[in-house]
Each structure stands twice: as structure tokens, then as C-alpha cells.
Design a protein around this nucleic acid. Structure first.
Lengths: 337, 337
DNA sequence: GTGAAAGCGCTAACAG
DNA sequence: CTGTTAGCGCTTTCAC
């Protein structure tokens, strides 16, 4: 029942605990024969050095704290997958907490884990945190020697490693793609106009228009503040009716689905009359009809990258501060020609 | 930089470390004045007792190990949400690992965490584990004093606390519901016929038929082994063509979407000609057209329940072994009349 | 080649 | 009311 300790093994062979410790760590100080028998015994009995004792001694837990705004989102679930995979590969465990987009929760989590539970944080900021521009909790953590790597939703004002999606380029390239297909009246529908990434996407959209020589028309931009996806249609329908558009870029899948429904309802064919492209994590896009062309985000790679950066930092493999940009890919399905 | 310890505080006030320890724990042995100044100082300096030292001393980590087959699945993400919420509420942290449906991975994870990292496991078995009926790693863990609570995909042969969905009743009630709406030719499409929960759902379907007096026709059951959802339609279309059905129950959302597409393609109206109901986690169902009626699974409640059972067990609040069944709910949307 | 002892940060029994 | 000490499980320096 009780777990086997170095002490028990020492007793078993009538040697000191330091001999056992050294034998298990294959020290040159210990004779081959002693090492062999001790190692064999330890293996047989499935001995494992106690995690907390090691952490205490080494002042390092080989554990990463992950803070996500939510897990009920395919993108973040993918990021998590990448983090977990990379962490495990590198011998790290992952303590995962959900901020639920709340600043208070986020800061409680940081407090809770700042007691030697973890070696560093991997996080995407809560919406509330971003809206209120309250980043002191991050700063405190870094100042206290617990490094942070931020991903996707990052805090501009905090100096730390970051991994972000290429939202700007993604949007710009999409406009260009649509233009080349002959689209001239390209709308932009955003449900995250208040977030930094939303602003980036809008900027990219504008940049794309400029590049191909289309003029920006603010009537072709719809910002939906409403957070309940069921109500998207109340905004989308009139928007579509009152504008003569031939393409739509949306910031998410859910609103793209609403948009496609609204388009169909108003007698438009997709993609014949109107093309639809969404920033997307993939799950709805692949099941919609028609299947959606998406600006695909590579959450898993983002997670892997962020985890690797943090681990390298923890193991002092590099110390400079970087911002890594993960490219988006246009995945062409059936909602574009 | 370096974290404040009890020792530092002791030095600050020229008292012993035990005085500090007791003061911080509000011991009756310490004078009010001493307690006050020490507590005040600790608070100011944001002192936090070292997690690893505490765990080592108490032989308890207040940490739960969670093993999920995948996180890229709305249901499991919901379960995770429930676990995380309950754990945090009870002062527990959560180390989360993904088995990716692999037995080897699952058992590595258990090995890795069985060194005093965690107090207990919360897990849903990997598919491979279930198919091969290899459950020794679970048994070992329990025998070694690390309790396990299983949820959703549980191992019949392992004696431990379990939380499961009411798959049997869910399917049976659905048949009854359809029958009352006038459906007589009710098909059953499964993509998990090899899993225990799949068998339960099929049994429930049969039970439902029996109850309402319809005879079981094995031609109305389609088992899809193919795991790529893109290929579902290859099986679903001929199945639909060769059978004259007026309702379909599926084991998942994804295949329900394929089924609805196939039905529409063959000229059937949903729900007028054929009703569709899926066991579901909700995300696709809410965005399909028509919106899908579902046998809804309450992942979050399952997670909360499982976590609470484990924590109660760890804190010795109860010791008997239970299996808790979470009811399903029929959520009626537009794919049924 | 092996062992004694200190120390990681904390608690608690015991002494004063 | 405060302090000394042992001990949680392990590593590591220093003796022998």
C-alpha cells in the first residue's frame, strides 16, 4: 500500500540511503554489483522517486500551468492538444485551468499556482482582462520568476514570449484570393471587433482591399456585439438584404453558418452568387452545407510552439524573448468557387 | 526573486520558524500580537506556503489526474469543464493528459503520475483499452492506493466508482417518443458498435421497440466501422435507399449530419418524411439545418459528479463504491415533428 | 566504495 | 507563549 522509498530499499540491503540514491542514479562512486542488485530490486518493486521530494529539492516541478479562456471551442482544444503532446514529450506535466473569460478567475488561478506548483505559465488572456487592460497579474508572475508564454490572445504591453496567429495576413490574403476569383463587393462580418485579434483581422481586410485596388466601404462591415449565436441572424439578415455583396469574410464559423443560412433564405446561391469564407477551427466548417472554405488556424501547432518555447526557456536553452507568428492557410471547400 | 519562506519571516522578526508556522496557522499557542504582526507581514509580502513542502509533509497533493481519450470532442470538453470547476471549488488542481485512445499512452500516463504527483484519477478509458480488455493498469493503481473514478467509458470488470450516461434508457425513450409521433419504421445507425456504450444504445433501441410493440428488424440497423466521417455517406446512402424508413436514431452528431444530407439528397423532407435524432453533445446539432433533435448528454454534470465523488473519497467523506447514472434529455429541435 | 549529515520548506510533538 | 527537534523523501558534499 504505502509507496516504496529509498529508505525501504536501504533497509532491504543493509546499506545507507545515500548508497541507494547513488546506485539508482548510476553514480560512478558505487560498485557495479551494488548498483546492479539495487537497480534490479527497484525495478521489480516498481520504485519511483517521490515527485514532491524531488521538486522540493530541485526547486523545479517539471509542471506547466495552462490557462485557457474556455475549452468549449475547437481552436483552444486543439491548442491544448499541442501543448499536452509537447509537454509530455519533454517530460512535463500540465495543470490546466479555465478562466471562463473572467479577469478575477484568471488572477485567482495565477495566485493559486504561484506557490511552487508549476515552473511557468502558458496562457491566452481572458476577454475581460483584455477589455479592461488589466495585466498586472501577468507582470507580477514574471517579476517573481515564473515565466509566461502567451498565445493567440496576447497582451501587447507585457514583455514576454508570444505565439500568435497571422490574423492580419490571413485576412489580407483572403481578400486577394476573392478578388482574383472575380469578387468585387466583399463584406466583412466580425463578432470579435472588441478584441485585438478582431482588430487585426479587420485591418488585414482593409489592407487586402487596398492592395487589390478596391475601396473600403464601411457599409460592408458588420460588427456583431451580441454573444448569443442564435441572435446573429437578427443582425446578419438585414445586413445582407441592404447590401449587394458577392463575398463575405467572417471572423468565426458560427456566424458564417448564420450568414450562409441568411443568404440561402434570401435566395442567394453559395458559392455562385456569394462566396463565404470564415476564420475557423474546422469542426462546423467541415459539416456545413455547402462545406465552408476557411482561413485555417493551426491551433495544435500553436500549442506545440508555445509549449516548446516555454520549456526551452525553463531549461535555459535560450533566453531572448520572441514573438512567433503561425501562418494561416486558406482551405478551399465548397463555399467559394 | 526567490520566494519568501517561513525562514525569511522568522529572521525578519527574530523568532523561530515554528513560531512563524504556528502564527500563520492561527495557533492558539501564539500571542495575538505576534500572530498579528506576522500575518500582516506575510500578507504584505504575499507569502505562500510552498506547495511541494506541504505535499511532502501531508502526503497529499490536492491534485487530481484526469485522463481523457481526446479533447477534440465537445462532450469530453464539457466533462472537463465540469471537472475543472468542481476541483477548483474544492481546492484541487487538475493535471490533464490525453490518451489519444491508446492503451500504451494510457498506461504510461498512469505510470508517470503514480509517483505522488496526484491523489487520485478521473478517467474515461481509451478505445484500444476497451477493445483489448486490458485493465491491469487501472487495477494496479487502485491496489497501490490511488483511487480511480471512471466516467462515460468505464471498465465493467474494474471495481471502482463510476459515472455513466443513461445510454440504454436514452435510446429506449427515444424510440417511444418517435412511436408516439406516429413513426413505425425506425432505423438505428451506429458508429460505435464496438464500444460498450454503443451496445447499450442498441440494446435500448431494441428495448424501446419491444415496449411499443414494434418488431426488431436487423435491416434497419446500420453499423459503420469506418472512422473517417467523410466516408459515412458511402454507407448511409445505400442504407437509406434500400430501406423504407420514417425515422433514424444515430449514435452521434456527425453521422446524423451525413444522414440528413443523404436523406435530403434522396428527396426526403426532414422532419416531414423522416425524423432524425442523435445522441449528441450539441455543437453540430445546434447549427445543422434543420436543427437537430438530440438525446442530450450533460457532459458537464458528468464531470462535476465524477470529480465530487473522487474528492469525497479522497477526503474520506464516504467510502462505499457507487455507480452514478446521469440521465439523458430529449432536446427537441427541428428534425422531428 | 560506502555512509553521515545537511538541507529543500513545512508541520507538530515536545520542552521550556 | 516561544523554541528545539524530528521528519516527510530525496540529493549531494564531505568524511572515512
Amino acid at each position: 500500500m504505502k509507496k516504496l522509498t529509498i529508505k525501504d530499499i536501504a533497509k532491504e540491503f543493509n546499506v545507507s540511503i545515500s548508497t541507494v540514491s547513488k546506485a539508482l542514479n548510476d553514480s560512478y562512486e558505487i560498485s557495479e554489483s551494488t548498483k546492479e542488485k539495487i537497480q534490479k530490486y527497484a525495478k521489480e518493486k516498481n520504485y519511483k522517486p517521490n515527485f514532491n521530494a524531488l521538486s522540493l529539492k530541485n526547486r523545479s516541478t517539471k509542471t506547466i500551468g495552462v490557462i485557457l479562456p474556455t475549452m468549449l471551442n475547437y481552436f483552444f482544444a486543439q491548442v491544448f492538444k499541442g501543448i499536452e503532446k509537447t509537454a509530455l514529450k519533454e517530460g512535463y506535466k500540465v495543470i490546466t485551468c479555465i478562466s471562463n473569460q473572467s479577469y478575477d478567475k484568471e488572477q485567482e488561478i495565477i495566485e493559486m499556482l504561484s506557490n511552487g506548483s508549476i515552473d511557468g505559465f502558458l496562457l491566452s488572456t481572458a476577454k475581460e482582462t483584455e477589455l479592461n487592460n488589466k495585466y498586472d497579474h501577468f507582470k507580477d508572475s514574471i517579476d517573481n520568476g515564473t515565466p509566461i508564454v502567451m498565445f493567440d490572445r496576447v497582451a501587447q504591453s507585457i514583455i514576454c514570449d508570444k505565439v500568435i496567429t497571422d490574423d492580419f495576413e490571413g485576412a489580407a490574403n483572403t481578400v486577394e484570393f476573392l478578388y482574383k476569383k472575380g469578387h468585387k463587393k466583399i463584406a466583412f462580418i466580425s463578432t470579435i471587433s472588441d478584441l485585438q485579434i478582431g482588430k487585426q483581422r479587420l485591418q488585414g481586410y482593409k489592407q487586402g482591399l487596398e492592395k487589390v485596388g478596391l475601396s473600403f466601404d464601411e457599409n460592408l462591415v458588420l460588427n456583431i456585439i451580441e454573444k448569443d449565436y442564435k441572435k446573429y441572424k437578427n443582425k446578419v439578415r438585414p445586413f445582407i438584404k441592404s447590401n449587394d455583396i458577392d463575398a463575405v469574410i467572417t471572423t468565426g464559423e458560427s456566424v458564417a453558418v448564420s450568414t450562409m443560412k441568411a443568404l440561402k433564405k434570401s435566395g442567394k446561391k453559395i458559392p455562385k452568387d456569394v462566396a463565404v469564407i470564415a476564420f475557423s477551427n474546422g469542426i462546423l466548417a467541415r459539416h456545413s452545407s455547402p462545406k465552408m472554405t476557411t482561413i485555417s488556424q493551426h491551433g495544435e501547432i500553436m500549442g506545440e510552439t508555445a509549449a516548446q518555447i516555454l520549456i526551452n526557456k525553463l531549461e535555459k536553452k535560450h533566453t531572448e524573448i520572441t514573438t512567433k507568428i503561425i501562418k494561416t492557410d486558406l482551405v478551399i471547400r465548397d463555399s467559394t468557387r
